[in-house]
Design a protein around this nucleic acid. Structure first.
Lengths: 122, 122
DNA sequence: TGTCAATATAGAGGTATGTCGAAACAGGAG
DNA sequence: CTCCTGTTTCGACATACCTCTATATTGACA
């Protein structure tokens, strides 16, 4: 059984400096409760439709510029993208980015099974 | 086809404040290139064996206390655990924690397929 | 017991981050 | 054209974070 795709999965590689920096930037964007909630609200929308900022802002006890700032960080991290439609701005998920993280964090099935053996026998 | 486990997946929930805070803390721990590399080195070891700190420290151009500090943060985030064996301290991965993140970031297969349709048709 | 090697903790300094209010920008409506 | 609403940008402040040096702790060994 293969261990996964070409260039990912945590334990298959020592994870070079450059790639680590790149991935850490994305994780850093997720490392804030407000941004995580924003992302979940955006991800919960129909794919490709997008969520209006005017729906996101009132869900928090934060000023509107603060929400805008967090959305900007999510966009810079490549986790979401946005577009202006008339008066409002809509945000939607970029699943390719979350997929990269999933690929990194997921263990190959063989490793996963082995780990469960180890845990069970301890 | 089921959509996954009981309480996770980004788009299925608005992701309550408490859970967001909890998960954000783990992502924050991953939001540093040094810690990501440390985690990958630890994860690359045989499951249950653990990696000696004495192997991790020389891989970086950082002082020994700095590496120790990062390892502490990884441990506090629940990503790794450690144990002293004689003179040395060994760290190993806690796969349950990375699994939680994977579950959060992974979309249910049905959503995933729908997203690919959307992308393909745009 | 005393010494040495491996890690961890404490404290400090510089930088980044989260938040705000004020102001700028963009579109729609009168 | 002018006003109004939704959104972003700017400047500032408090706090958190990364890194260091110095020191403490832990265990092995003579």
């Amino acid at each position: 059984m293969r261990t996964g795709s070409c260039c990912t999965s945590l334990q298959s590689a020592p994870l070079g400096e450059d790639r680590a920096t790149e991935l850490a930037a994305v994780f850093k964007a997720l490392g804030d409760p407000v941004r995580l909630r924003l992302l979940s609200m955006i991800a919960a929308a129909e794919a490709g439709v997008g969520v209006c900022v005017c729906e996101l802002t009132p869900a928090f006890d934060l000023s509107q510029p603060t929400i805008s700032h967090h959305l900007k960080l999510l966009r810079q991290a490549g986790l979401v993208d946005s577009e202006r439609r008339g008066t409002w701005v809509y945000y939607w998920l970029v699943p390719e980015t979350t997929d990269k993280l999933t690929a990194l964090l997921s263990r190959p099935a063989s490793e996963w099974a082995r780990q469960h053996e180890e845990v069970a026998s301890s």
